[in-house]
Simulated assay, not measured.
Amino acid sequence: MNIELTGKTAIVTGSTQGIGLAIAKGLAGSGATVVVNGRKQSNVDAAVAEVRESAPDATVRGVAADLGTAEGCQALVDAEPSADILVNNVGLFGPQDFFDTPDDDWQHFFDVNVMSGVRLSRAYLPGMEKKGWGRVIFISSESGLNIPADMIHYGFTKTANLSVSRGLAKRMAGTGVTVNAVLPGPTMSEGVQGMLREAAEKSGKSLRDTAIDFVRAERPSSIIQRPAEVDEVANLVVYVASPLSSATTGAALRVDGGVVDSIA
């Protein structure tokens, strides 16, 4: 199976580190022109250099914009008016008790995790429809199905990603444009490592061993019994972004290590 994306332009939001950066590298390695995004120009520049190093022949650009705002989304669209592939990856997460989560935090998570994808899909889908080809991928989470008691505000936004992606797939029916959601489980991204660093320091264990302990304690239904690597998530996204996935749309595709205990 050869994934060939030469001639396609892919925008990956929130791609200066973690899963987003791995996706950007995977798409660039398959021949796509890749647009990297983050809030800080220095981080964007570093990520662009890292993607170029991984795929020396690729065309890679960067746009610094805060996609948690309408103005930031418009800045990205102004800089990159068209795209063949849009990966709505940017997102926030973190444990916080429901009774300690104020309205402003709920709104911030909604703006970043949900409205960024809504705004950018609204901007780029019409152009994809005119060309008769396009891919929009929302990075949701197994937490959108298994709502964590300590991250209700986060799980809610990941469920919203599933609703928006399924509805948009129906809206784009018959156009040659597919819309899907990919659901990672616990993954060894910088964000997860940061969340677990204090526990690792207290226990004296490595971050990897601490992450394995976390999965087994907090996600005991995991079948792989470990966190995924960012490249394992990116591999699925690259396939879904390719012409090979043409009959897959409106789907919630899990790369969660089997955490969601369902056969459907």
Rank of each mutant, 00 (worst) to 15 (best):
L125D: 05
V44L: 02
K170I: 04
T175S: 15
V44D: 05
R135T: 13
I3W: 12
T16M: 05
A169K: 05
A169R: 03
H153T: 14
S140L: 03
V240P: 04
C73Y: 01
D103L: 15
N89I: 03
G31K: 03
L168K: 02
S262E: 09
E198I: 05
V35D: 00
E232W: 13
G127M: 06
S189R: 05
A65V: 04
S30N: 13
E142V: 15
L207K: 09
D84H: 08
A160D: 07
V118L: 12
L196H: 15
D105Q: 10
R39T: 10
T101A: 09
V260L: 11
E232L: 14
S15C: 01
I152H: 08
G29K: 07
Q74A: 15
I3Q: 08
D209P: 04
S116Y: 05
G132D: 11
L125Q: 10
S262G: 06
A79Q: 12
G127Y: 04
L236M: 11
M172T: 14
S30M: 13
G185C: 07
K40P: 01
V215H: 07
N2G: 07
V215D: 02
A70S: 10
V259R: 01
G38A: 01
A22I: 04
R208S: 10
A28G: 14
G91R: 09
N113E: 04
A234R: 01
G94S: 08
E53S: 07
V164K: 00
E198M: 06
I85E: 03
E129Y: 03
I137M: 02
E229Q: 11
V87N: 00
V259S: 05
P184M: 09
P148A: 10
M188T: 04
I212M: 11
A211P: 13
G250M: 03
T157D: 01
E218H: 08
G258C: 14
G91S: 12
S221F: 06
S222M: 07
M128L: 12
G174F: 08
G191N: 15
D256W: 11
N113M: 09
S206D: 15
V87Y: 01
S245L: 11
A24S: 04
N88P: 02
G132I: 12
F99D: 12
R226W: 11
L207N: 10
G94W: 09
N113C: 06
A58H: 03
S143T: 10
V233P: 01
Q41A: 13
L67A: 02
A58R: 06
V177M: 02
S163V: 12
R216G: 02
K158E: 09
E190I: 13
F109W: 10
V233L: 01
K202E: 15
G191T: 15
R226Y: 12
W106R: 15
D105V: 09
R135A: 09
L76K: 01
D261A: 14
A22W: 00
N113G: 12
N88E: 00
A58Q: 04
S140A: 15
Q193P: 05
V112I: 11
R52M: 14
